[in-house]
Amino acid sequence: MTTNSSEFASCQTSAPIDPKLAMGWMHTARFLTTAAQLHHLPPVDVPEIAFVGRSNAGKSTSINTLTQQKQLAFASKKPGRTQHINLFALGKQGVTDAVLADLPGYGYAAVSRSDKERWQRVMLNYLMQRESLSAVVLLCDPRLGLTELDEALLDAIRPRVEQGLKFLVLLTKADKLTRSEQAKILSITKLNAGGGEVRMFSALKKQGVDDVAQLLWHWCHPDGLKPATPAPAAPESAAPVDTPATPDTPAQ
């Protein structure tokens, strides 16, 4: 994937902020809604950051670590279980200045072909059509590197990247690697990603947590602090859904 690196200069040259500000902002995350079908997602007029990645890449764990909440995003021990998009609002209670989207994991071999195809439609439609989407965080296991599915996803969002969509490749489970291995994989991933940001991350060791929180804060506040927007009305729902979608409610 190739893109102009100047598109990301603004986030690289933004004035540094107090990590406590960014981490405090991330900690305001709260459940907004869940949906198995895209048209059930509420429209929002604030930046929306999508977390995507293969099953078992550490997506939900990373969200929970960044928000300092143990059970905000459901982390299942059974890969491929979640088939819904879960939205989380960020900002002071009652107002929202950004939204996090936790998308279903992909690439798990033990699910049916029809499920895989349905999840692919969900993600592609979301990534191509969601108007409020302003950034994508692609999580991957550095021991595997960018897989064919990861590269296909980066290729799919290329048109939107060229229009200003930001993306971050987050190499999770960095604690499984030595420092020299991390440096090597970081360099290789930067070349293969073709632009954007690349970070090492460890939920266990808290490596990269402050750095990523600050990056996301800058992406959502390009002009610095400004008044937040009233939170959008969410469809009636009690909690993030982690059970498989039924044939009666296929994700489109």
Rank of each mutant, 00 (worst) to 15 (best):
L153F: 13
G91M: 03
L215M: 15
P232Q: 07
R118Y: 01
L170P: 11
E148L: 10
D141G: 03
A9P: 00
R158G: 05
L87K: 05
K206N: 11
Q12D: 09
N4K: 04
F51L: 12
I188R: 12
K226L: 06
Q83E: 15
S60H: 07
D211K: 07
A152E: 15
C140W: 01
V44K: 01
D175H: 14
A101N: 08
Q207C: 01
E162S: 14
K116A: 08
A228M: 10
F74S: 07
L38T: 07
T2D: 14
L170R: 14
G224R: 05
L103V: 09
P250H: 02
K77F: 05
S237R: 08
D223H: 14
L154H: 12
T249R: 09
P227D: 10
V198Y: 02
R199Q: 09
K78R: 14
P240Q: 05
L103M: 15
A135V: 00
G24K: 06
Q214A: 10
A239N: 03
S6F: 00
L38A: 10
A50H: 04
A203E: 01
N192S: 10
M123I: 11
T243V: 00
Y126W: 11
L154F: 13
A50D: 06
V137T: 11
K77P: 05
A135L: 00
V198T: 13
A101K: 05
Q214V: 04
A193N: 07
I17M: 07
M128C: 13
R81E: 08
Y126D: 09
F74K: 15
T229S: 14
L153Y: 08
P19G: 02
